[in-house]
Amino acid sequence: MTHHILKATKKTVHLGGFSQQLEPALTVDSGDTVDVETYTGYYIYDKAPSEFLTPEFIDICENLAPERKVGVGPHLLTGPIYIRGAEAGDVLEVKLKAIKPSLPVGFNAIRTGWGVLPHQFTQPALRFIPLDLENNITEFPTGSNIKIPLKPFFGILGVATPETSRNSIPPGCYGGNIDNRELQIDSRVFLPIFVAGGLFSIGDGHSAQGDGEVNVTAIETSMNGTIELKIRKDLQLTTPIAETPTDIITMGFGQTLDEALEFAVKNMINFLERFANLSPEDAYVLCSISVNFRITQVVNSPQKGVHGMLPKSIFTKQISL
């Protein structure tokens, strides 16, 4: 297995969406690991303090080529990464081996017309939030003595689909803007593959986020990480699933929370049928008595997200993907 380093430059990032027409930023073999660098804040860099900016990031913001702008979303993604041998119908396993903010500041933005309370908070607002990376906390508001632990994760983990361009804002069967704060170090994310090579992209780093991400953003943070990419030809999936050290996570996306919850429950039932050999009815009962269904996010229009967390500790025999 080979270890790669993928720096974020104007030639290795893309903006706003996913596209199978993008030139890969890197080609790897199944089982390879990658040190990956990501930046965030493309549209607000001119308002940012100096500690938010690096020469490479400024170069990206000022000189990104038109062909690397593939959608209307605000997200700057590193990739895509082409995995040799990956075919449509396979599953891409992404293991998150390291995740760390690269800069001592992130931002939160309220956007007009977005969020859970768009009619109450009508004015845009941008806040840059200092991060204490040595102690892994942030104080917000500054001077309040409210200390928030940093729990960094990547909001976007996704693959390309047959469409020419796909907006980076809504999540879907390909992953994308999942915004699930449970996907931290030592988690694995499993994504259905739709095109040759998978064309995996990553970004949208968050240093801290509450379930729901109710005002549209978390602490948006430029983030570095180490990932392992593996082709799984022994799995068949139609929607993303994840595994943390403690839980199996199924996901549901829909235009309402009711719809997203329904899909998350159905996906958990399907998982329990296949991997725990339960009947559909027994799986449904188990979902009600032991699975925790939580709001992932409610702001990535038009898709809201719900995820179900199945504790692995309830099984006497190991259960894993």
Rank of each mutant, 00 (worst) to 15 (best):
V91R: 05
S168V: 09
P74L: 07
T226R: 12
V189H: 12
F107A: 08
I248Y: 09
A88C: 09
F107L: 11
F293R: 12
A260L: 00
F190A: 01
A125H: 13
N136V: 01
L278I: 07
L272K: 07
E182P: 03
G71M: 01
R166Y: 02
G197N: 01
F293D: 10
G113P: 07
H206S: 13
L15A: 00
I289S: 14
N180V: 09
L261R: 15
F154P: 06
A88S: 15
T164N: 12
A276F: 05
E37D: 08
E243R: 08
T138H: 08
E228W: 14
V28M: 04
N215T: 12
S301F: 09
D46V: 03
T38S: 11
N224L: 13
V28E: 01
R84G: 06
L92R: 11
E228K: 13
P311R: 07
P104C: 07
G205Q: 06
E262I: 11
M268T: 14
N224M: 09
D258L: 01
V195L: 02
V72D: 12
V91K: 08
R111S: 13
T54Y: 15
N167M: 03
N135Q: 02
Q318Y: 07
A86S: 11
G175V: 07
N277K: 13
H75V: 00
